[in-house]
Each structure stands twice: as structure tokens, then as C-alpha cells.
Design a protein around this nucleic acid. Structure first.
Lengths: 333, 333
DNA sequence: TTGTAGGCGTTATCAT
DNA sequence: ATGATAACGCCTACAA
């Protein structure tokens, strides 16, 4: 491996000059720059990222902390972040937090110990206080899908209220009035925001919120199953079902079919998140899509701007979901 | 940040001694070791991974090159590898190759330039020759789901012949004799191996391979669609359909339903890969599962053993797929 | 068992 | 615009 020193010898200049061309420093004459470049070429010189890191206390790496390495949501997110960052010559160190407080903290510590220049995190178990305190440290933290007032400039979040509104409005504009709603665990902000949007849509169209058509599920298939079951057992009548995520919608669909419903004609169903399998369900599931890749890209851009001082970058801190219309939501006959 | 130097001062020993306890060197008396540990504790000392790397030319990082950051297969794989490696204090640098020759090569170069101690790669576009040559370099390369004779000790692969055999045998043992087969692109080893297994099962049970019940698809939904269409258009009779992957099976299912088939009673279908949506299809799809997490873990173990000299690790280079029985494959009436 | 000194490949601060 | 030289934080012979 050729070093900067050998390059300097071959080019007949000093170490510092070589370093300068390496870092695009302006104070180098075109002539010398050319000489140096040629020498580098000839030696097949590759700068050592490690030595650079040691000398500059920059690692050109950004840590990514996601709940799971697996799964479409995180997959898309990592993919977008990595792509954007790599185009800028940075690399990503990825580690999972498994939605567990201890593991998320470990993840942060791990990435910090690796001297990442910044951390982009999607965490749900640690408290806001922890995150605020962490932000005082020397490694900058950026948050995905989470809004913390005190560090809002480092947050990229989704407008879940808008999404919830969109889902219910979709049913309303298709003629439905009796709309059941299966919510997610209300301690999760996403879930309560989506519910807020649901209520907003109802009130906008003069429909009263009915506790009997409301169930709090667990964001898993069982939640959709149990929710629908409870509505049916209580003999409540409704023609549409809004689920706060796709898993629950899938569970509800299975339950509905097993109990004599003909889908989608007997019951319109909408999900949320646009996870990949929604397109494989029968009927295909109408759902709300999050602009996950765009968010990932934006997070990367935010880091590029803040940390690596790239210019000409415009930041958008909040993203709007959109409707994906499929077969599961016919108009009321 | 405290340095090794300050620790040595506080503990009243030399730099090297501190370094020794850091690296679990045997030649340190218990007493001094204790003193040093306490000093570290008191200063909240954290070794700098970068300085260590520079001095030892080890980065404690292993590169992972996968086709996509997104997707269940790679998700599971990365997850398993990361978990195993992190437990050993190593970290992973992940980058995608997008199944494109240039991008895969870029990925390798990128990881090599990052001084990874080793690279675990799942690549499909680069040639065997390239991989063999790369293996001559100073960064050890390990291959997932790919077998290259010349560097077989660095390969972890799947027994696709066995999987193909299993799929078809499943149909045969359920009484089917007229079994259609939609294969994957035959230049892909996985695809041709699966086909080989299919033929093996047929011959084992005295069923002749019928060109009319054979179609080469593209591993995507359209392939299943087109394959089934061609069988039907040709008025061939068959009661079972084996697809070389789940996407094609899904495409075939949609086409079948749209053309008057009642599933699963009119046609038994089996897929391959056990991707997540198979469980959401209607009917749920019987398929062949790859032990992806196990493979990932094994790859990590292989690196731990070869590169980081961990002991007591047993390596298994080839993994067997298994059958996931669901609703899409009833017995022939 | 412990200490000394040189080196790993750059960056950064001064001079010049 | 260019060059010396001291960090950066640790490892590793070699010496003691």
C-alpha cells in the first residue's frame, strides 16, 4: 500500500502538499496538483480512511439505529439513507435496537464507541429525556419518525394525523357512514395520531364518533381479528373498517372471510403503512403509504448538511403520507 | 476523552502495561491489572477503536455486501450476521450491490477501501473468476448462497437440488402425477439446481419429465402468470403446479383464480423461498424454506473462526431447505 | 513481569 | 503556495 509519503517523494513535494490536494485545499497551484495526482495514479495510491480518522477525528461513517434490520419499512429506510450517504463517500454502520429500551441504549453506545460522525436513529423504547440528554453529547443524534420538541431540528417525522384523516375520508367519500376503527396501542404516538386524524375526518363530515365502533388493537394480526370479532359479537352494524395498520387489516380480513363476509362487497377495509404483502392479499388492500425512502434520503441530507457541511440542501422535517387505492374499498352500494 | 496515557499515569504504570491489560495479555500480574482496571473505571476510559486500527491494522469491522438492503431474504441474513458479530464486539458495514456487476464491484472496492477485516458477500452478477482473483487480495472474501470450487472453504451455500426435490416430492406424495413446473432463469444456478431436484423427484417415482408441462419464467409474478397461461392455452391437463419461487407462484395463483380455478381444490400449488407474503396469500402458500438466519450466523462464525481466531466453532458449509406446509397443496381427490 | 521507543498514515499548525 | 513538525491514540518489538 502506497502512502502519502511515497506520493510526495515521487511528486517531489512535501507531505503537506499531497494532503492538501487530497482534501481539495485551494492553496495548491494547478501545476503541483497535477504532478501530485499523477504520482497518486502511478502508485495506485489509496488514502487510509483510518489514519485520516485518527488525525482528523472524523470517521466518515454515520451510525444507523433501527428497530430491525429485517422488514420492509426499515429496509427501505436503510436503503435510502445508505444510497444517499455513500454517494457522498460516507459509509453506514447499522445496528438494531429491537424496540427494547436496553438494546436501544446499547445500540447508541455501540455506535458512539465507533466514533460515528452522527447517528440516525429510529427508536421507540427510549424516553424523550434520554434522547435529549444524549443529544448533549459529542455525537449528533437525528431522529426518524419521531418528534421531540427540544431537538426538533434533528427530527424527521411523519404526519400520522393526516394519514389517519386520509384513511377515514377515503371511506366517507365512498358513501360509508358507519365506519369501524381498530386503533393501535395508544401509548405509541403514531397510533394516537392516526386516531386523531380519524376523528378529525369524522367530525369534518358531521359523523359522530361511536365508542361501539372503536377498538384498540396491538398492531398485529390478532388485533384485527379480535377487533372485528368484538364488533360483530356486539351486533353493531357497519359497512367499513379502518385499521391503524396493515397487519391488523389482514387479520380482520381473514376473520371476516371466515365468518361469512364476502370481501370486498360486504365490508370495505383500509389499512395503513403499505407493507409489501398488502398487494398480495385478496382482495388487494387499500392503504396509506408512508414516503419512507424520501424520509431516509432527507435524513441523510440533513446529516450531510449539518455534519459534512454540504451546501445547497433544503430540509423538510415533516412528511405527508398518501393514499394507495386498491380493491378492498368499494363504494357503498 | 481519556487516553491510555492518562490511565497509565493514574495507575502508576507504563503505557504498554495498560495496553497489555486492554488486550488481555497474560504477562501482567494480577495486582497491576487490577490497578489499571480501576484507573480505567475512574477515568471512564474508552479505547479508541480508530487508534487501535491504525496501530494494529485491524478494524474490527466486517463488510457485508448484499443485493438489496431491502427485502426479507437479505433482511434476515444481515440481521443474523450482525447479531452474531456484534456479540463478538465487531461491527458490520453494509452496502448493496443491486445484482449489477459494476455496482457489486464498486461495493467490494468500497468495503476494501474501508479496511474491513473480511467481507461477507451475496453477489450474483460478478463472475467466479473475479471472485477468485479478489480472494488473492489481502481482504478475505466469504460467499453466501454461492459455491465456487476454488474457494469452497469460504463458501456457505444452499442445497437447491434438495429443495427442488422436496417441492415436487410433496406433490407426488399427495397423489399428483401430472405436475407442471415453472422454472427460474436457467443461467442462475439456484434455478437450475431446483429444476434438477424436480427431475430427480420425478424419476425417483417413475414419472416421466414432460416438456409440455415445463416453462421457464423470470422469477417474478409475470413469470408465473405467463407460465400458467401457456399450460392452459395448450390444453395440457395437470393437477399440481410447482414454481421455482414464491413470486411466480403468486402470479400463477392470481391468473388461476382469474380464469375460473377454485384454489386450492382445482390446482395444488407450491412455491419456493418462503418469503413473507406467502403467509398472506389466499390460500396460504405451501413453500420451501431456506434456513437463512442459520446461514447468516454460520457465515459470521466462519469469519470469527478464520479471522478473529475464535476457537470451538464448528463450520457447516451447506444448508438444507425444509418444507413449509400450508393450504395450497391439498391431496389429489 | 514491566518499561522504552518507534511507528501506523494522516491532518493541522506554524513558519517560510 | 509550500514545507517542517507535532499531534492523533494505540501496538509491538526490544530492552531491562
Amino acid at each position: 500500500m502506497a502512502t502519502i509519503y511515497q506520493v510526495s517523494e515521487l511528486a517531489g513535494v512535501s507531505l503537506s502538499t499531497v494532503s492538501r490536494v487530497l482534501n481539495n485545499n485551494d492553496y495548491v497551484s494547478k501545476k503541483t496538483k497535477k504532478k501530485v495526482m499523477e504520482a497518486m495514479q502511478e502508485l495506485g495510491y489509496q488514502p487510509s480512511s483510518i489514519a485520516r480518522s485518527l488525525a482528523s477525528s472524523r470517521t466518515s461513517s454515520v451510525g444507523i439505529l433501527v428497530s430491525e434490520l429485517d422488514g420492509p419499512f426499515f429496509g427501505q429506510m436503510m436503503s435510502a439513507i445508505e444510497e444517499q450517504l455513500r454517494a457522498a463517500g460516507k459509509h453506514v454502520i447499522i445496528t438494531p435496537g429491537h424496540s427494547d429500551e436496553t438494546k436501544e441504549k446499547n445500540g447508541f453506545e455501540f455506535l458512539i464507541s465507533r466514533n460515528c460522525d452522527a447517528i440516525i436513529a429510529h427508536v421507540e423504547a427510549v424516553s424523550n429525556e434520554y434522547l435529549i440528554e444524549l443529544s448533549q453529547g459529542k455525537t449528533p443524534i437525528y431522529l426518524m419518525s419521531r418528534y421531540v420538541e427540544e431537538i426538533k431540528d434533528n427530527c424527521i417525522s411523519l404526519d400520522n394525523v393526516m394519514g389517519g384523516y386520509l384513511a377515514t375520508k377515503t371511506m366517507i367519500t365512498r358513501g360509508h357512514k358507519n365506519i369501524a376503527y381498530i386503533a393501535g396501542p395508544q401509548f405509541k404516538i403514531d397510533a394516537s395520531d392516526r386516531l386523531k386524524g380519524h376523528k378529525q375526518a369524522l367530525s369534518e363530515f358531521g359523523i359522530e364518533f361511536d365508542e361501539n365502533l372503536f377498538y384498540i388493537g396491538d398492531f398485529k394480526e390478532t388485533g384485527g381479528n379480535d377487533g372485528l370479532k368484538s364488533f360483530i359479537d356486539n351486533k353493531i352494524s357497519f359497512t367499513a373498517l379502518v385499521c391503524a395498520n396493515d397487519e391488523m387489516a389482514s387479520g380482520a380480513m381473514k376473520y371476516a372471510r371466515e365468518h361469512g363476509f364476502n370481501l370486498p362487497s360486504d365490508l370495505a377495509i383500509i389499512g395503513y403503512d403499505n407493507v409489501i404483502f398488502t398487494n398480495y392479499l385478496y382482495p388487494t388492500l387499500t392503504t396509506i403509504n408512508n414516503p419512507v425512502p424520501e424520509m431516509g434520503k432527507m435524513a441523510a441530507n440533513l446529516v450531510l448538511k449539518d455534519i459534512y457541511k454540504h451546501t445547497g440542501i433544503t430540509i423538510n422535517h415533516i412528511f405527508q403520507p398518501n393514499l394507495i387505492l386498491r380493491d378492498s374499498t368499494p363504494s357503498l352500494k
